Amino acid sequence: MTTPSAVEARIRMRLGQSDAHYGGDLIDAALVLRVFGDLATEIGIRSCGDEGLLSEYSGLRFTAPVHCGDFIEATARLVRRSRLRCLIEFEAYKVIEARYDDRPSAAQVLDRPVLVCRGEGTLVLPWAATARSPHRLTSTGARP
Rank of each mutant, 00 (worst) to 15 (best):
L115R: 07
G24Y: 10
R85K: 05
V79A: 14
A142Y: 09
K94E: 01
R112W: 07
S47P: 00
R132E: 14
Y93V: 10
V114Q: 03
E42W: 08
L115M: 02
T138Q: 14
R112Y: 06
W127D: 08
S5C: 03
R46H: 02
S55Y: 00
G49D: 13
L39F: 09
G23T: 09
C68H: 11
R136N: 09
E56G: 04
T41V: 09
R81C: 13
G119I: 13
E42T: 15
S139W: 11
A74Y: 03
T3Y: 11
L53H: 01
V7I: 15
C117P: 06
S5L: 11
E8S: 11
G37V: 14
L54S: 00
E91L: 12
V95P: 08
L125N: 06
A6F: 10
I88L: 02
E97Y: 08
C117Y: 08
Q17G: 05
P134D: 09
R10S: 15
F90D: 05
D28F: 12
R143Y: 14
L53P: 00
A107G: 06
V35W: 00
Q108M: 06
T130M: 13
S133E: 05
P144S: 10
Y22M: 13
R85G: 05
T41D: 01
G24L: 10
A76E: 04
H67D: 02
A30C: 10
F36C: 03
L60N: 11
C68E: 13
P4E: 08
P144W: 15
R12H: 04
R81S: 14
R34L: 12
E56D: 09
E73I: 07
R14N: 12
R83T: 03
L123G: 03
L78F: 00
V124P: 12
G44F: 13
E51T: 05
V109G: 07
D38P: 00
I72C: 01
G141T: 00
M13T: 15
C48P: 01
K94T: 04
R77G: 10
L87S: 14
P65V: 04
P126K: 07
I72Q: 00
Q17M: 06
G24V: 11
S18L: 11
A74V: 08
A142S: 10
T140S: 15
L125S: 10
A64W: 08
G59H: 03
L15M: 05
S47L: 04
T41H: 00
V116H: 06
P65Q: 00
F71Y: 07
P144D: 11
A129R: 10
A76P: 02
S5Y: 08
S55T: 01
I88Y: 02
R103G: 14
G59M: 03
T122W: 14
R143F: 14
E97N: 13
E8I: 15
E73N: 02
G69V: 13
L137A: 13
L60I: 15
T41G: 01
D50Y: 06
E8N: 10
P65G: 00
E51P: 00
S55I: 02
D111Q: 14
F36R: 01
V95A: 12
L31Q: 09
W127T: 12
G37E: 12
A129L: 09
R80L: 09
I88G: 04
S82Q: 00
L78D: 02
L33V: 13
V32F: 06
H21V: 04
S18P: 07
A9K: 01
C86Q: 12
G52E: 03
L84A: 09
G16I: 02
R112M: 06
